[in-house]
Computed example of a mutant assay.
Amino acid sequence: MPHSDLLPSLLFKINENQLALEAAIMERSNGVEQRGAAEVTDNVRGALMAIDRNEEFIKMTLALMMTPE
Rank of each mutant, 00 (worst) to 15 (best):
D5V: 00
I14T: 13
I58Y: 03
N15R: 11
K59A: 05
M26T: 01
A20P: 06
D52K: 08
N17Q: 12
M60T: 10
N30F: 11
L10M: 11
N17E: 07
D52T: 12
L19V: 04
M66T: 03
A24F: 10
E33S: 07
E55D: 13
M66S: 10
T67H: 03
E39C: 00
N30E: 15
R53V: 08
K59N: 09
R45N: 14
L11E: 08
E27Q: 15
M1N: 08
F57D: 00
R28N: 11
M49K: 15
G36T: 08
M66W: 01
L19K: 08
N17K: 14
M1C: 01
I25T: 00
P68T: 01
G36C: 06
E39R: 14
E33V: 00
G36R: 09
R45W: 06
S29R: 05
K13Y: 11
E55R: 15
E55M: 05
L48S: 00
A37Y: 02
A47G: 02
D52E: 15
M1E: 07
F57Q: 02
E27P: 04
N17I: 06
R28K: 14
L48M: 12
N30P: 03
I51Q: 09
T41H: 05
N43E: 13
D42V: 08
M1I: 07
A47L: 14
K13F: 06
E56S: 11
F57A: 03
A23C: 00
D52F: 04
